[in-house]
Simulated scan of single mutants.
Amino acid sequence: MQLDQYKVTANISLTKSQTKVVIDDAEKELKKVRKQLGKLQDTLYAHGKYSVLICLQGMDTAGKDSLIREVFKDFNARGVVVHSFKVPTELELKHDYLWRHYIALPARGKFGVFNRTHYENVLVTRVHPGYIMSENIPGVNAVDDINESFWNQRFEQINNFEKHIAENGTIIFKFFLNLSKEEQKNRLLRRLRKQEKNWKFSPGDLKERKLWDKYQTCYEDAINRTSKPHAPWYTIPADDKPSARYLVAKIMFDTISAYTDIKEPELDDDIKANIELYKQELNNE
């Protein structure tokens, strides 16, 4: 399987990108690779020099929540921390828009998952620029002040943020779950038909769906401006959930496995020389 085809290394067009790929035995293959990822996380923790940040973006119903549940099922619970970023709180709005993401970054040795990310600040706010007004930014006194220069600056800030954390040991993955409009319709209808799924539905989902084309344009622009070698975007076909989950897990495993310096630290020479003595001491208790 050529996983590099999903990595964004040149400008892409989302209208020409795949939204569905079906991988044989995807669920079976996922079980294998997620166990490997779990073991790799143990080594990452013992090594203690890298952290891993997984950024998940996609339209409503793209499958972010279930992907997190299935991909990280075999992790030590203390080895992965998930943050779901909603509407900024009063406290968060008193800081710059990246502050809440900085403080949620994973510690060395851990995986951090951002379910919706700092990219909401160039996606939802770009579709609804009025939201920016609640940030109380100097020089932005009206929606008309939010011009192309404003967005250029914000993209530069995001690129600098990711470059900074990458240079300090964070391995960054950014996955766009590329869902078709037709499949989103089917998933919204499923939420309405199944009583146990009703709680997931909001009338606001339909309002946002009407802005589908605008969101796609903003996603495409954000991906093209911010896919860098140290923080690449991957566009993952999301219409088939098992295949999408496997692709995400496999890309992470293959990429991290290529870091030849990530290994468990060797024991101190004095400890190694006395291992048999320590065994004997315990056995003689």
Score class of each variant (00 low, 15 high):
residue 139 G to Y: 04
residue 173 F to P: 00
residue 166 A to N: 13
residue 117 T to K: 05
residue 210 K to A: 15
residue 177 L to D: 03
residue 199 W to F: 13
residue 125 T to I: 09
residue 77 A to S: 14
residue 206 L to K: 04
residue 71 V to G: 06
residue 168 N to T: 13
residue 207 K to Y: 05
residue 88 P to D: 10
residue 207 K to S: 12
residue 198 N to H: 09
residue 143 V to C: 08
residue 69 R to Y: 07
residue 110 K to I: 05
residue 185 K to V: 11
residue 205 D to Q: 01
residue 108 R to K: 15
residue 201 F to I: 05
residue 135 E to D: 10
residue 115 N to M: 06
residue 76 N to Q: 14
residue 206 L to S: 07
residue 125 T to R: 06
residue 144 D to I: 01
residue 101 H to Q: 08
residue 146 I to W: 03
residue 118 H to E: 12
residue 75 F to N: 09
residue 172 I to M: 09
residue 153 Q to T: 14
residue 204 G to Q: 06
residue 104 A to I: 08
residue 132 I to D: 06
residue 150 F to W: 07
residue 70 E to K: 11
residue 147 N to C: 12
residue 111 F to E: 13
residue 136 N to E: 10
residue 193 R to M: 12
residue 83 H to E: 14
residue 180 S to F: 02
residue 153 Q to H: 13
residue 152 N to A: 15
residue 68 I to W: 02
residue 92 E to S: 04
residue 68 I to C: 10
residue 96 D to V: 08
residue 169 G to E: 14
residue 91 L to S: 15
residue 73 K to V: 14
residue 106 P to H: 11
residue 90 E to F: 05
residue 84 S to A: 15
residue 179 L to K: 02
residue 210 K to G: 15
residue 139 G to V: 08
residue 108 R to S: 11
residue 107 A to I: 09
residue 77 A to I: 13
residue 92 E to W: 03
residue 83 H to F: 10
residue 205 D to P: 00
residue 176 F to R: 01
residue 141 N to P: 02
residue 118 H to R: 05
residue 158 I to K: 02
residue 88 P to V: 07
residue 113 V to E: 11
residue 122 V to Y: 02
residue 69 R to E: 15
residue 144 D to V: 01
residue 82 V to L: 12
residue 83 H to D: 11
residue 70 E to D: 14
residue 84 S to G: 14
residue 99 W to K: 08
residue 131 Y to P: 03
residue 103 I to G: 05
residue 71 V to F: 03
residue 109 G to R: 03
